[in-house]
Structure formats: C-alpha cells, structure tokens
C-alpha cells in the first residue's frame, strides 16, 4: 500500500491578495486625511470653542501666528517669548514684510490663545502688536460640536 506523504510536493502558500487590498485601502485612507499644514499649531494650546467658528473662506494674507499658552508664554514659530519680549520677534516679521513691499497693516496677527489664558494677557498682546503697527487680528477658536 502506498502512503501519500504530506508536504513532499506542495509548498504551503498564503493567499495575500485580500490582505494587500486592505493595506492599500488603509494607506489611501491615511494619505487622504493626513494634514501637513499644521506647523503653526501648538499641542499645548487648547483653544476655546465657539458655535460660530467656521474655517475661513480664503487663506489669510501674511498670517503671523502667535500661540499664547495658559502660563502667558508666547510661541511664535520655533521661538518662545513673553508679551514684554515679543517685540524683537515681531520686528523680524516686519522686516520680512518690508522686503515684500508690505506693511504691518497688511499682515494678519493670528492669536491662538489657550482657553484658560487670562483675557487681559490677550489684550496686552494685541496692544503690543498695535504699537508696532499691526491692525488686523484674528482670534482663532475651535469649532464647537453641537
């Protein structure tokens, strides 16, 4: 009697078609949702919520983003400052604007303040920017989920 051996002739092969399909779907999902344009955001800032918050229809002209946390520290790009020490950083931005034939009046100061920051500190920050010639301010908030 001849006994057939198992594994002598057949190679065990996994059918990976379904797995590759699924992995491609996952990659497409994450690629579509990934957002690289979050460089101006700061994880330490928890924005206040507003039911009227809607994304701007058009991008802001010359936005300068100031992140103000609950301890009154201001993050502007990679630099850290306080209200009293922010003027040199803003002057750097002004010289950049000047090199593009623009004035501080053309720029938009985007204030991303922590919800627990003191309102007076935001006022101080606005006042400091006003002293340097900035006029347009944008208070950034988080969309409130109803």
């Amino acid at each position: 009697m001849k006994v057939r051996k198992i594994f002598d002739t057949k190679i065990a092969e996994l059918d990976m078609t379904a797995m590759i399909d699924m992995v491609f779907q996952l990659i497409i999902f994450f690629m579509v949702l990934i957002n690289f344009a979050q460089d101006d955001q700061n994880d330490k800032i928890k924005l206040p919520a507003s039911e009227l918050a809607k994304p701007a229809d058009s991008p802001l002209t010359f936005p300068i983003t100031l992140n103000l946390d609950s301890t009154s520290t201001i993050y502007i790009g990679a630099s850290i400052a306080t209200v009293d020490s922010i003027a040199p950083l803003l002057r750097t931005e002004i010289s950049l604007l000047t090199s593009r034939n623009q004035t501080p009046k053309d720029a938009n100061i985007v204030i991303r303040a922590h919800r627990n920051a003191s309102g007076g500190m935001v006022q101080d920050l606005i006042k400091k920017c006003q002293e340097l010639g900035f006029e347009k301010f944008v208070l950034r908030v988080r969309e409130e989920t109803l």
Binding site: N35, Q38, Q41, L47, S50, L52, A53, K54, P55, A56, L60, K105, V110, I126, Q130, E131, G133, E135, K136, F137, V138, L139, R140, V141, R142, E143
Partner: peptide, 13 residues
C-alpha cells in the same frame, strides 16, 4: 484635528 475658525478684529492703534 478639530476644525478651527476665526473671528476677525480690526483694531488700529
């Protein structure tokens, strides 16, 4: 990331 929106304020000195 939660959707963000803006309030515009024009405040000349």
């Amino acid at each position: 990331a939660a959707q963000e929106g803006d309030f515009n304020i024009k405040m000349p000195i």
